[in-house]
Structures are given as structure tokens and as C-alpha cells.
Nucleic acid binder design. Structure first.
Length: 228
DNA sequence: GCGACAG
DNA sequence: ATCTTGTCGC
């Protein structure tokens, strides 16, 4: 991924790439094939970022393959421009996989984005893979509190009323997660995948595995760098 | 202009 | 994201 020099350039890239997002495909059915979780962790001291990609068997949620990558942080955190900070290293991790990733689940948003081009959509366009976004926070979007039962949901709304995703309750009486479509997956299917992957905890198993792995990769990378 | 704001 | 102990509960 080309790293833009400034925020204006970054927004221009988003506006150009967003035209390539595919929203009229349903995507693979939940519970079959492979599902890959990606996540990154930062070390602000050393300006290092570690990414992880964990491939799961969608039927059993067993780990099939893991990959990590470490790099320099190339872009600051700016709300709306998160992809430029995370994607380069995530791509490096994905490229090391020997298995096809299948559906990719990432932290953050896809269509739920100021310019409808969040992390999940960006990653989808760059890889061509079906991608969904499952975020832990609602960002600036609004929603009515969904029911308290697992599977209950309510539309995630942008200013102006556009439905950009869904607040989905993955566990009884636990704060919902915020699901949005990234690329080549319908919102209904994205939620079905999320529910399937979050059968035991609030967050999808893909996210939990990737989170644990990138933190471990960051620890090990931080210790290895000093010498050479 | 100021604050809020995925990770 | 990250800084962070003990503690309550299955």
C-alpha cells in the first residue's frame, strides 16, 4: 500500500479506491471453509507495529495457520484514516499465509466510515478478498439499544440516516459489537459470521486470536531489535 | 474555533 | 491503541 504524505492525500486515495468496493455479493456462508482474523499492536516508544493473521477452520474454529509481520509505523492515528496506519503491516502478514484466507475479519469498520471506506473496505479492495469489520466502539454513529438477547441487533446510522452497519449483541446482556460490511459480503451475512465466531465471548474468535498473537509478536520484536 | 472520534 | 493489581466468578 502506498503511504500518503499527508491527510489530504490520504482522503484522496480513499475517494479513489472507494469506487472499487463491491457491495452486491453475499459472500461465503458462515461455518464453512476458512475465516481469518487480522489485528495489530503498537509500541509507540520504538514506533513499531506488529500485525497478525490467524486462519481458523470456520466449522470448528480450530487454528489452521498463523502469520505475523513487524514494521515501522508509517502514519499517525487520525480518525477516519486508520487504514493507512494498519494495512501495510497487515498485508505483509497476510502475504505470508500459505492457505487462502477465506473471509477476513478485522477490527474496525468497513462502510461505517465518514467516506464509506474504512479499514475493512480498504483491505478488501487491496486484496480482492471478502472482508467484514467488527468494531468494539460505535465511533460517531448512532443506534437504538438492541435487545438483550444474543443475536439481537439494531441499525447503525450515520448522519443523514444512512444505515452503515449494525449494532449486534453477541452475548446476552453484554455490550454489542459494531458490524459493518467491508467488501464482497452482505450485512446480513457479516452479522451471521460474527455471531458464529462469537459463540463464547463478546468478540469474534478470529479477533481474539489475532489480538493475542500480534501482542506476542510485538513483545518478541521489541526484545529482538536492540542488538542489531 | 473547539471537541469528539475505529485502533 | 496503551498505561495497569487485585479480584470476583465459573
Amino acid at each position: 500500500m502506498d503511504t500518503p504524505t499527508d491527510e489530504a492525500a490520504a482522503r484522496a486515495i480513499q475517494d479513489r479506491l472507494r469506487t472499487r468496493v463491491v457491495l452486491d455479493e453475499t459472500g461465503p456462508p458462515p461455518g464453512t471453509g476458512l475465516v481469518t482474523g487480522v489485528d495489530v499492536a503498537y509500541d509507540d516508544e520504538r514506533n513499531i507495529v506488529a500485525a497478525a493473521a490467524v486462519v481458523l477452520d470456520a466449522a470448528t474454529l480450530a487454528v489452521v495457520e498463523e502469520a505475523t509481520a513487524v514494521g515501522q509505523v508509517a502514519f499517525p492515528y487520525v480518525p477516519g484514516l486508520l487504514a493507512f496506519r494498519e494495512i501495510p503491516t497487515v498485508l505483509a502478514a497476510l502475504e505470508q499465509l500459505t492457505s487462502g484466507p477465506g473471509l477476513v475479519v478485522c477490527d474496525g469498520y468497513g462502510q461505517a466510515h465518514p467516506r464509506r471506506f474504512g479499514l475493512a473496505s480498504h483491505l478488501g479492495v487491496l486484496t480482492g478478498l471478502p472482508v467484514i469489520g467488527v468494531a468494539k466502539n460505535p465511533f460517531t454513529f448512532t443506534y437504538a439499544q438492541p435487545g438483550t438477547r444474543r443475536g439481537d441487533s439494531s441499525p447503525l446510522l450515520a448522519d443523514g440516516g444512512d444505515v452503515v452497519g449494525r449494532a449486534l449483541r453477541t452475548q446476552e446482556s453484554v455490550k454489542p459489537v459494531y458490524v459493518s460490511v467491508g467488501h464482497r459480503v452482505s450485512l446480513d451475512n457479516a452479522c451471521a459470521h460474527t455471531l458464529h465466531l462469537a459463540s463464547a465471548y463478546r468478540l469474534p474468535e478470529t479477533t481474539r486470536r489475532a489480538d493475542a498473537l500480534c501482542r506476542r509478536a510485538l513483545r518478541e520484536a521489541t526484545l529482538a531489535v536492540p542488538g542489531s
